[in-house]
């Protein structure tokens, strides 16, 4: 649904995006992570045919971003970084305006507007002027606008950045529900928890270059090593543990606990439990995986890239 190859953008001599490759099939969410000024917004603007790539090519919803800009825009819903609304309009007027620009029939605009406003908890504020909306409400309305024409491709730049936890939860649920077999979503965010929750694929962009791109779990494996597990024990080890079975690497230990790493937990963990009992070691209270954050993987990836972070 979104396919980009070698997408590059120069602003005069400044290289903003450097050979970005993207492949987002229908039904998938790709999260673009990166510091400010990394090239996320420029990438989105190239995918919406607002900026013309200096090099490379991209096809969005089956249309070439350079040769078929009108068709691209017709099939893309964009939540922009700055979603300045028209303060003297009501939400229904605002949505009707954009609906007409997308060529939707009046009845359809009315039906979809009301349904989406209801879904995002904005129905009651329908008659308020937008200047009276809070920051989070504006953000939600901008998101509603991007979905109004039911596009097969959604490009969302910081969709929950200004929202309170409850609104952010509503929006995240909405994004999950939008992940249908017909729709591809590209989401730019700084929120790593959100990225972990929503992403099928995470691409880390730095200084205009994609430095890592994969499923969140694989990225964690790559940058944080294999999964770590923790054993909580009923009694003290008292120096009785002088070795561990094959495939198990000790990471840390205490008197009544230990942490280990393994590449193949499905095979290793049952074998370890059996070995533990066999060697009459203190009873196991719990065996659990130590959570690894995407944040740690992101920081590791950024650190490993060797590229200096360019904060805008």
């Amino acid at each position: 649904m979104i396919k980009a190859q070698g997408l590059t953008k120069y602003f005069d001599e400044f290289l903003a995006v450097d050979g970005v490759d993207l492949d987002i099939p229908a039904g998938k969410v790709l999260v673009l992570l990166g510091p400010n000024g990394a090239g996320k917004t420029t990438t989105v603007r190239m995918l919406t045919s607002i900026l013309r790539p200096s090099r490379g090519q991209a096809v969005v919803a089956g249309f070439d971003v350079v040769r078929q800009p009108d068709q691209v825009r017709r099939n893309v819903g964009v939540l922009t970084e700055h979603h300045g609304l028209y303060g003297r309009m009501t939400s229904l007027e605002y949505l009707a305006f954009f609906g007409r620009l997308y060529g939707l029939p009046a009845v359809e605009i009315e039906r979809r507007s009301r349904a989406l406003l209801e879904q995002f908890g904005l129905a009651e504020a329908g008659k308020k002027r937008l200047s009276e909306y809070s920051k989070g409400m504006r953000q939600k309305l901008a998101l509603v606008r991007s979905m109004l024409h039911n596009p097969p491709v959604l490009l969302l730049d910081e969709p929950t950045s200004a929202m309170d936890p409850e609104s952010a939860h509503i929006v995240r649920n909405a994004i999950k529900s939008l992940r249908t077999s017909e729709r591809a979503i590209l989401l730019c965010t700084h929120n790593l928890v959100e990225a972990e929750e929503l992403a099928d694929t995470v691409s880390i962009i730095q200084k205009g270059r994609i430095i890592a791109s994969d499923q969140p779990e694989i990225l964690k494996d790559r940058y944080l090593g294999y999964k770590i597990f923790e054993l909580r024990l009923a009694g003290s080890l008292d120096g009785r543990l002088d070795r561990l079975p094959e495939g198990v690497t000790l990471v840390d230990r205490g008197n009544t606990w230990l942490r280990y790493q393994t590449a193949d937990p499905e095979a290793v963990n049952p074998r370890l439990a059996a070995w533990w009992i066999e060697n009459r070691l203190p009873g196991i209270i719990s065996l659990s995986e130590v959570p690894r954050s995407l944040e740690a993987a992101y920081l590791a990836a950024v650190g490993a890239s060797g590229l200096e972070v360019n904060h805008a």
């Binding site: 607002i50 825009r73 700055h82 979603h83 300045g84 954009f98 620009l101 997308y102 606008r145």
Partner: peptide, 17 residues
């Protein structure tokens, strides 16, 4: 003016020529 208020980009994203 629209650019300064940040409302121009949604307009530019519409399929208008």
């Amino acid at each position: 003016g629209e650019k300064e208020r940040g409302s121009i980009e949604p307009l530019l994203n519409t399929p208008l020529k």
